[in-house]
Structure formats: structure tokens, C-alpha cells
């Protein structure tokens, strides 16, 4: 049998791979689940890593108990516009942002608790036609909004309590930004990808647009996930939600390219494809350090080790249904995988 179906045997050994199920959170809400993330929060006087889940009209914070059990401690409610995604502010404590909208983001709200009475609060941070948003370290948030003629890129910095914010405008590349990505280890640099296959770099301290670099037509509508600066080059992880299948290498879900920011020249380094026998396009995903995870249109989650260059784990749809969103926990090597019915599974990697 192994000789007849070598690809299937290999895929079987990949299922779960390095992932081990450690716990499950079940949101009893009737509404559709949309996102999950991890966040630092001070609960009963102690700062700890919590899980935050989003349904269409609620966002809930879960505190860890013993033995990988979770208890819901806070729920913020929204009435008019549904939640689209959680926007974590990476190293912030007691602060998290959410993006609300229908198909496109219409509002970004900051969620926090008041110092005095621990009442749940939310404040409107930005409204309008928001195209891309990313939470950064040092309680900063960057978002691009507006159309071609009134395009703006804003950087906001929040105070510890979330009550006030400083706002700075970054120079616009004068085209639609699809996504932002931090450059690991360079807190004053920010990278973005645009609708017309440009990669742009900003200096966040000065607001300057440092470079706009064309990366070719094969990268149409690429989403940047993470960048690393090394030896004078930028290594950028991209996904291609509209990418075409390349027969010789299967379906590349992520791709690593190297760019020389001084000359704007770039080369392909490596595609990250699905194992033989698996198909699907990129739906949702996240890159943390050397690990990339993606939910595919097939309902499967796939994990790649960017250094090893191949898929190291597959989570096939289970009896509850397809996977619909996936995130890495910020504090430990855990994968948070969620389904529309409100189930979030925590896997250690």
C-alpha cells in the first residue's frame, strides 16, 4: 500500500505533525465567530497571557485556569457594525483594538477597562473607508484609509490607560495599501504591499516614505506578513490570495523574497507550497518568527517552518467543520485555530 500511495502515506504522517491539542474554548454565542488572538491582560492584579475571541457582535477575553482550561472574564458588546478582526497591539497590556465593518473596515475601536471601577470601555479610534490596519509594538497602530485622491496613512500611539492618543501622518504612496508588516528587529521601520504590486517602506519616526519598489506582475495583490532585515537585505514573506497554481511546485501559499532596499532589486528565495495531494488558496494566516500558518479555502490549516522550507503540520477539517481563522499565540508556541461555530482549539507546537 505504501508503494502504491506514497503521497497519501506522507500526508498522513503530516496530519497534526508537530501540533498537539491542549485545550478547546467554546463560545456559546449563536453568532458567527470571526477571529482569535492572544493578549496580555491584568486580571485580579496579575498580568497574564489571555486569549481574546471575536464573534460578530461580541469580543470576549478568556483567562487561563489550571490544566489548560479557560474562563471568560470580560465581554465587550457591539450593536451596529459587526466585528471583522482583532487588531492586537503586540506588547501592550490591557489594551486591544478591533476592526468593525461589513465587507470593508468602517471603524477601529480600542477596548480597555477603566482603572477606577474595572468597567469595560471602548473608544472610537478611526472611522472611514479603512483599507489596511496593523497593531505595532509600543502601543502603536497604523492604518490607511481613503480613496486614491484623499489617501492617508496614520500612525497612532496610545497612552497606558487608552484614554489619549498621539497622531502622526505618514507620507502616502498615493495608491491603495493592501497590508502592513513589521520588520522584525527594526521598530522604526514599517513595510506595506500595494494593489499594484509595490512594496513600500516608511520611517515611522520621521513619517518619510523611504522607498517604493515594484516586485513584478506575478505578485499581483500580494499580502505582506512579516519582514526580516539581515546583512543589508530585506526578506519579506508574502501570500497570494489570488495566486495561480504552478504545476511544477503545487500551490504556493506563502513566498519568501529578498529585496535590496537600496537598489529596489528583488529575487525569489523560496515558495512555501502545499504537500502533494492537497489543494486550496490562502484565506487567512499569520507569520510569527520562523513559523507561518494559513487557513486554506479547503478548510485545512497548514503550517510551514520558514527555515526548513516545507510544510510541517496539517490540520484537516474535523467533525465540527472547516477551520476559518488561525493565529499564533504571542506569548508561547501555541497555534490558535477557530471555526465559525465558536470553537477555538489551542495546539502546542
Amino acid at each position: 500500500a505504501a508503494e502504491e500511495h506514497p503521497a497519501e502515506i506522507w500526508c498522513d504522517s503530516l496530519k497534526l505533525g508537530n501540533l498537539q491539542l491542549v485545550s478547546k474554548l467554546k463560545n456559546p454565542s449563536d453568532s458567527c465567530s470571526v477571529d482569535v488572538s492572544s493578549v496580555w491582560w491584568e486580571v485580579t492584579g496579575c498580568k497574564e497571557s489571555c486569549i481574546i475571541t471575536a464573534c460578530e457582535f461580541t469580543v470576549s477575553l478568556w483567562k487561563s485556569l489550571d490544566n489548560w482550561q479557560w474562563r471568560k472574564v470580560y465581554t465587550w458588546h457591539f450593536t451596529e457594525i459587526p466585528v471583522l478582526q482583532i487588531v492586537p497591539l503586540l506588547d501592550a497590556c490591557n489594551l486591544v483594538c478591533v476592526a468593525l465593518g461589513h465587507l470593508e473596515i468602517r471603524e477601529i475601536r480600542l477596548l480597555f477597562c477603566s482603572d477606577d471601577d474595572e468597567c469595560l470601555k471602548q473608544s472610537l479610534v478611526k472611522s472611514g473607508n479603512i483599507k489596511a490596519v496593523l497593531g505595532l509594538r509600543q502601543k502603536r497602530l497604523v492604518c490607511s484609509n481613503g480613496t486614491l485622491h484623499d489617501h492617508r496613512v496614520d500612525l497612532m500611539t496610545f497612552s497606558e490607560s487608552g484614554r489619549s492618543k498621539e497622531k502622526q501622518t505618514l507620507m502616502s504612496p498615493e495608491e491603495t495599501i493592501l497590508a502592513f508588516a513589521e520588520i522584525q528587529g527594526m521598530q522604526d521601520a514599517l513595510l506595506g504591499t500595494t494593489l499594484t504590486s509595490n512594496i513600500v517602506i516608511w520611517n515611522l519616526k520621521t513619517g518619510q516614505l523611504l522607498k517604493k519598489m515594484q516586485i513584478g506582475n506575478s505578485y499581483q495583490a500580494s499580502i505582506c506578513h512579516k519582514a526580516y532585515s539581515d546583512m543589508g537585505l530585506l526578506f519579506v514573506v508574502l501570500s497570494h490570495p489570488h495566486g495561480k497554481e504552478i504545476e511544477s511546485m503545487g500551490t504556493p501559499i506563502f513566498r519568501l523574497i529578498a529585496i535590496n532596499p537600496k537598489t529596489a532589486l528583488s529575487v525569489d528565495v523560496r515558495p512555501y507550497s502545499l504537500p502533494q495531494g492537497h489543494t486550496g488558496r490562502f484565506l487567512d494566516g499569520e507569520v510569527k518568527d520562523n513559523l507561518a500558518a494559513a487557513v486554506l479555502t479547503s478548510g485545512t490549516v497548514a503550517v510551514w517552518d520558514l527555515f526548513l522550507g516545507h510544510c510541517t503540520a496539517l490540520l484537516l477539517p474535523n467533525s465540527d467543520g472547516n477551520w476559518s481563522f488561525v493565529k499564533w499565540s504571542d506569548t508561547d508556541s501555541c497555534l490558535l485555530a477557530g471555526q465559525k461555530n465558536g470553537s477555538v482549539f489551542v495546539y502546542s507546537y
Partner: peptide, 23 residues
């Protein structure tokens, strides 16, 4: 990746681009 593919590489690219870009 080599200089033949990517052109001259600078370790201080961020500082250099900042000084060259419009304020």
C-alpha cells in the same frame, strides 16, 4: 542572493534611505 542579482548592498540602508528621502 548575491550582488550580481541585487546590486550593491548596504548594511546601513535604513539610515541612508532616510537621509535621501524627501522630509
Amino acid at each position: 542572493c548575491s550582488e550580481s542579482d541585487l546590486g550593491p548592498i548596504s548594511l546601513n540602508w535604513f539610515e541612508e534611505l532616510t537621509s535621501e528621502a524627501p522630509p
